[in-house]
Design a protein around this nucleic acid. Structure first.
Lengths: 119, 119
DNA sequence: GTGCGACCTGGAGTGCACTCCAGGTCAACC
DNA sequence: GGTTGACCTGGAGTGCACTCCAGGTCGCAC
């Protein structure tokens, strides 16, 4: 099992070091392992989880909801139905976001066309 | 030319009264007309502009950028090419948002499939 | 053995976009 | 003429998600 230094995780995940510490502090990231000097050493699993966090965050899930999801993950396999439910609800919201953006985009296109016609 | 009371504009645009006042204060909404008692009376044009603001806001445009757009609109017809440019750039960003969301959504779908396969 | 760079901690500060509040005006209805 | 409700103002407060800072440790290169 390879481990990652903070700098490597910053590189791989795109989260800043401060953000990683913040996520650990609030419990979105479970207590990360340390070396003898007390420096963080992230596991493969930590990095994988951060990939999920990035996905959820970038689709607009609030931290409070991610925290609930994190707790389900930690609680064990019997929470898998709950996790599916949570992700499906989020998926609906993402779908709604996409549709909403597409509709707004049409409005922008119309506006641009209008400007072109009068400009 | 019909005018609208604050309550009507809240109803039509979905912005809160506080938000409307805030937008006027920062100059996103040009000085709104008043009746004899000093109460706001919004014009058709104000309401139309608020529709544009809603579109831009809901597609993630920062207020600072909306403010620049508002200034172009006020500056007159010779700024139409600049407005087109601004909207086209924003359109690109909206497109990127949509694509990004769609990709993240695929990840969520995979995760749900995975959970279904092990749950 | 000294400087440097990566890292540590707790806690304060930031930026955005509102949102709320206290205290007041005014017209209208009872 | 008293109460109600919609509205007014300036300014303070909120929530979210970070982001920054001071002061310190550690190991390695020079």
């Amino acid at each position: 099992m390879s481990v990652y230094t903070p700098a490597e995780v910053v590189e791989e995940t795109g989260f800043s070091l401060d953000t990683l510490r913040y996520y650990e502090k609030i419990g979105l990231l479970e207590r990360v392992g340390r070396n003898a000097a007390g420096q963080r050493r992230f596991s493969e699993e930590d990095v994988g989880w951060l990939g999920m966090v990035r996905c959820l965050r970038d689709t607009g899930m609030p931290i409070a909801t991610m925290l609930r999801f994190a707790e389900l993950v930690r609680a064990g396999d019997h929470t898998i139905p709950d996790r599916i439910k949570l992700l499906e609800e989020h998926d609906q919201q993402v779908q709604a976001q996409i549709e909403n953006l597409a509709e707004r985009q049409r409005y922008i296109h119309h506006k641009i066309s209008y400007y072109r016609s009068v400009g």
